[in-house]
Write a protein that binds this DNA or RNA. Sequence first.
DNA 1: AACCCTGTTCGGCAATACCGAATCGAGGAC
DNA 2: GTCCTCGATTCGGTATTGCCGAACAGGGTT
Lengths: 254, 254
Amino acid sequence: MIQSVERAALILKALGGGSRLGVTELSAHLGLAKATVYGLLRTLEDQGLVEQDVETGKYRLGPALLQLGNAYLDNHELRARSFRWAEGLAVRTQEAVRVGVLTGPTVLVVHHVFRPDNSVQILEVGASIPWHACAVGKAIAANASPAVLEAIESGPLQRLTGTTLITKRALDADLKKARAAGVAVDDQEAIVGEAGIAAAVFDHRGEAAGAIGVTGAVERLLPSGPDPDMVAAVKEAARGLSRELGAGRALSRG
Amino acid sequence: MIQSVERAALILKALGGGSRLGVTELSAHLGLAKATVYGLLRTLEDQGLVEQDVETGKYRLGPALLQLGNAYLDNHELRARSFRWAEGLAVRTQEAVRVGVLTGPTVLVVHHVFRPDNSVQILEVGASIPWHACAVGKAIAANASPAVLEAIESGPLQRLTGTTLITKRALDADLKKARAAGVAVDDQEAIVGEAGIAAAVFDHRGEAAGAIGVTGAVERLLPSGPDPDMVAAVKEAARGLSRELGAGRALSRG
DNA sequence: AACCCTGTTCGGCAATACCGAATCGAGGAC
DNA sequence: GTCCTCGATTCGGTATTGCCGAACAGGGTT
């Protein structure tokens, strides 16, 4: 691991975590000399990866990151192929659709279709959600390799609402249920009143590349248990998308 | 400029420019030893900034960039404050609205409101557009500091359509017109059939922080010259937004 | 006007990252 | 099945490079 690059990345993540930070704050945060941080910041600024506030002298993330983030999306195969499936799923279920991938202990939303009801909604592409508190995350986890599952389950599991599952035991049971049902369900585990139903998407190696699912008001998605039509729609979308990615017959692990 | 960080940034930009690249391709592209590039890539991968394709061994951009790009947007003051103005402008003009900032020689779209006509549209947030071929870019350039203007005008100016202005002379005249009118106009200079009307947004220092404007079919925006109602709407949105950013009375340079 | 808290610059040390060359592993051609 | 080639990966020595401590400069506040 080359030291200066690693440190530069940590600076970016520190700046991403909150608002503007100064050289002194960053050097304290990272435990480095001020001059070291300053040199890194100068280079990052030169590359457009950070910007310095002309008034306060503090630093914030730079525009090049937005371009690179966009380029990441453009090169994303799962995302590209999910467009028509997500659109169809949204129309059929009349709910918002999310496509996500697992990055570390969080789900990164790579595609999002609004609920087709003309209401004002904010785009969630780029948002990160704790894996254990959303249907998409649990759908991926339920079909992940043992090593990955172990890694994400061993981290701290934050309680977001009263129903969030935060013990390995409860989660393992829930993932087993998800494997049996073919879909994972989130019952107000991230936001009170909001539920989700999602199914894993597999690539040509049979690995879970991500998941697709619907999110919406709990009374619509889980009227008395998961709505069967929605479950079927989600499963079909996930299966179709998997096939497009080249998945063979073995669509599920174990 | 610290060497390894600079090189790491160049790798990211190279990967962002196209599709997957291998160690050898990158080392040839940057003129570095393979082992050097390899070390940088390993570090970048460790930080989630790049991903390695398990099959081909080639590298692509990583998910952390999407998160950072999103964080950039979250911390963006102009963008945050532009939400309600952009929404209002879209409703009033019945056209798509874009808010952009200047980054190097291109305009980066930081906010985008769809044309309110229920058609399927793709979100352009994160997209980069040559400054000289869009109304937003010209609105910013017309009010930029001489140094910035000189920098962007001296670069190569690509012809995108038959009407794209690509000489310094033609652009200077157009910018002068834009300053006089208070809005910049793009008449199919980026895409045939598409026009734009935009006005600069000023921050509390009186500097052009970006621009807001409408885009749409040329026959609606420029029926016989710029539609006066649209011009007025764009100017009002830009002025309101500037005021929110703390701009004083001096809303225009010179 | 003095203080304090920033961001910024400088110079020397040695740790650090660079490079060239060798190794490994996979895919294709015959 | 075997050879060949091309690309990713590893290794070790070198001196370049970036790190650090300490001093400087510039606002804002008291």
